[in-house]
């Protein structure tokens, strides 16, 4: 019996990992290409959730699942064009301060507009219900969430590894000077990556809105775990982030089972161990500019 329960927690942990993945992927992309440590990334996730609340009455849940990430992506474009772009060449501490400030402005902004109280939001009744597979239970909603996330991650992978756009981005990560010498400006690529990265965070916000508390500080809540995922996964590796997100989800799920008070600490312990033995992260590549 015990084994069944552990398997159940592992499978559930994979599910938890999927939403870390949506946040961490954008974080990793923006850092790898632009060198910006985006502390405001969680804020985009929160804005996604708030947009879901605002839009669902008008265009339904499915509509907001498409519209909210697009809107968040558009905000990302504006932020990239007018703020990030000034800081690619400067000391990373400056962009750290910039995004730190942005995160606070976003959080307080949400608080001023919507108040600190959680906003009520429920999943569409069509998605209520559970699937039972033997001893296992899966809410329909999480299965839907899983499929949307898998589609989003697959499309991102195709974009990065199967298109000319992706080739330039990956070259830009490895050697921006060479890309420049070849006469390609990375600026439009950076703008697209920023839109994609924060758009994914916005998507995650919409997906989680029906099952977590929607409040102004929800972004800060999820951000630290996403950073841990990026550090564990290693830079420059798409699958590193994927593996790390799932690993973090499973570790967290299992500690929740065996030692709940340690479930929060467990992922930092994991990060510590990974950094001790693999300073570049699990699948981190050797990237000249970061060494």
């Amino acid at each position: 019996m015990e084994l069944i329960f552990i398997i159940e927690q592992v499978l559930n942990g994979l599910l938890i990992g999927v939403y870390y993945l949506l946040i961490a992927l954008g974080l990793s992309l923006i850092f790898s290409l632009g060198g910006i440590v985006n502390l405001a990334h969680g804020a985009f996730y929160a804005i996604g959730a708030y947009l879901a609340v605002l839009l669902t009455d008008r265009i339904g849940f499915a509509g907001s699942l498409v519209a909210a990430p697009v809107l968040v992506g558009l905000i990302g474009i504006a932020v990239e064009r007018f703020l990030f772009r000034r800081f690619y060449r400067s000391d990373p501490i400056l962009s750290l301060l910039l995004t730190f400030g942005l995160a606070m402005i976003a959080e307080q902004g949400l608080r001023m507009i919507f108040g600190a109280s959680p906003l009520p939001y429920a999943m569409p009744s069509a998605l209520r219900g559970q699937v039972f597979v033997g001893d296992f239970i899966y809410p329909y909603y999480r299965l839907m969430m899983l499929s949307v996330a898998v589609v989003a991650v697959t499309l991102t992978w195709l974009l990065l590894y199967r298109t000319p756009f992706g080739r330039v981005v990956r070259a830009g990560v490895q050697n921006p000077e060479m890309v420049g010498a070849l006469g390609i400006s990375l600026e439009p690529y950076m703008m697209a990556i920023a839109a994609l990265g924060v758009g994914l965070a916005g998507l995650c916000g919409v997906l989680l809105a029906p099952i977590v508390t929607i409040h102004p500080a929800m972004g800060a809540e999820i951000l630290t775990a996403a950073f841990v995922v990026v550090v564990i996964g290693g830079l420059g590796s798409f699958w590193g982030v994927v593996a790390a997100a799932l690993l973090v989800g499973v570790v967290r799920g299992l500690t929740s089972y065996f030692l709940p008070p340690a479930s929060e600490a467990s992922i930092y312990l994991l990060m510590l161990l990974v950094l001790l033995f693999r300073p570049r992260g699990l699948f981190g590549e050797r990237i000249q500019k970061f060494e």
Binding site: F31, L33, G34, G35, V37, N38, L39, Y88, R89, D91, P92, L96, G172, P176, E177, V179, G180, S185, L186, M190, T224, F227, V228, V230, V231, L235, M271, L275, P279, R280, G284, K289, F290, E291
Partner: peptide
Amino acid sequence: MIVKPILSRRALVQGA
């Protein structure tokens, strides 16, 4: 062109 003079992986851990 994008040039990063003092960028390192440490920035990421600092970010966390």
